[in-house]
Amino acid sequence: MREKLFLKGNEVIAEAAINACCRFYAGYPITPQNEIPEYMSHRMEEVRGVFIQAESELAAINMVYGASAAGARAMTSSSSPGISLKQEAISYLAGAELPAVIVNIQRGGPGLGNISGSQADYLQAVKGGGHGDYKLLVYAPYNLQEMWDLTMLAFDKADEYRNPVMILGDGVIGQMMEPFFPTPYVKPDLPEKDWSLTGCKGREPRVIKSLYMGEGELERRNQIFQEKYLTMKEIEVRYESVDVDDSEIIIVAFGIAARIALSSVRRLRREGLKVGLFRPITLFPFPEKKLSVLAEENRRFITIEMNAGQMVEDVRLAINGKSEVMFYGRPGGAIFTPEEIYEKIKTVY
């Protein structure tokens, strides 16, 4: 079927989740992600799933924690201030090795900020966010096709790694409409959830917890987590390169910033400037190896983000002084135009 659908970004995420057999959603209203709970409220009824409008973001993600422990595919969504509230339970999900999909349709911050699109939660998303040594698998879609595909993938990866997975979108991509192909969901071979709490009929009782008080126990648990993150780094890295092979300057950008930058790259190319775009699709694991290779060929980088400079830290770590890494960003929910990026590149080219 090559029929296209025309939906709002937030609705694409919700429908993709339903398509990927998510049957439990709990959330709390916050702009600019309200279409997700609204859409889920009627779709979950249609598919006989569970929709709960919780009393808070804390409650919503702890409902997801409970549903996930029962073995259900469960999701919650919010926007930046609400995601801050969820950090406690995200740490518990990681510590208890419970799969869940968490959607952050970012808005401007800090504090109550504004309701414009933003990328200011990058560091919170990729460095853990809550307490303790843990990582989320973080996907950054840049169009609605990826919103669809990556949301479905997120559920599979959450189950595969028994780890929370985040879709890091923003107010622009959440609110915009464009056509996409609703590719059918094909469930991969995943191990049975032989850890879920369903009552101990015919088996020994199970415990899901994150408290380990015995000598060395918690360190060993952490080592297991770190091995998991290492595996992610080896096999889950995703990125897209556009015109990087002969480029003298590579723009590094993710999500909606990459979408905007792509227009600038095309215009600069038409004018003969050797500019490329490198777009991380997974923010954790970060495509550091590829960036490191690209840096060996004597070219310069400019990281472009809708924040005051967050991913640029990871870009600099990956490049490790081998090339110059410049930064251009707009914090506080400001959204740059393709012309702005075009002008910026012209001045540094």
Binding site: G66, A70, L197, K209
Partner: peptide, 28 residues
Amino acid sequence: FNFDILEVAHGRPPAAATGLKRAMPDRI
């Protein structure tokens, strides 16, 4: 306790219980 147990963050058991129960209405 000699049955399935979920450890939950401070104060959040009623929310997690909601998740468990709604996902498995026939369990106690």
